[in-house]
């Protein structure tokens, strides 16, 4: 079976590197899958759990905090503002972040005009990131 190279790069490290069979990510306007010999492509991606499928059918999730993806010469490069493989995720931290973000959003929704100090976009982005992280972390434990 043909394979395609995948490289996930965050500002602080090359997070992940492997030959894979298919990558599924959430692009700005929907999920897309990239398989070997894909045409050159550049897509902006939103925070999501990227699904990596290997030649032998195994699947793995990688948390991605949004960014860009470039496909060129049978190689995918994901530029993410943050990215983590399941073992790199700090589950406790993600859970705390999840609760904090949820509280903030609830507080804001209950009285949007009073709690103007809450940056709702930020809170929602944080919630999204926490959800993705927890999902990815759990994919291994199960």
């Amino acid at each position: 079976m043909p394979t395609i190279k995948l490289e996930v790069v965050s500002p602080d490290a090359v997070v992940y590197q492997a030959d894979i069979y298919m990558l599924t990510v959430k692009a700005a306007d929907g999920e897309i899958g990239v398989m070997p010999n894909h045409l050159p492509m550049i897509a902006s991606i939103i925070p999501c759990a990227m699904r990596v499928k290997y030649e032998d059918g195994r699947e793995e999730l990688i948390a991605c905090g949004g960014g860009f993806m470039e496909v060129l010469n049978n190689k995918i490069t994901v530029l993410a503002s943050c990215a983590e493989t399941p073992i790199q995720i700090d589950v406790l931290r993600a859970e705390k972040a999840y609760q904090r973000a949820e509280e903030r959003i609830k507080k804001f929704k209950s009285a949007p005009l009073v709690n103007t100090e809450i940056d709702i976009d930020r809170a929602e982005a944080a919630l999204q990131r926490a959800i993705v992280r927890l999902k990815v972390a759990k994919s291994v434990g199960a």
Binding site: A28, P40, I42, A43, S44
Partner: peptide, 20 residues
């Protein structure tokens, strides 16, 4: 020499790319 496919389109990608 195939040009890139842009999702959703080149303008939006560049718009999101520049701040990054």
């Amino acid at each position: 020499e195939e040009p890139f496919i842009f999702l959703p389109n080149a303008d939006d990608v560049l718009g999101a790319l520049l701040p990054q």
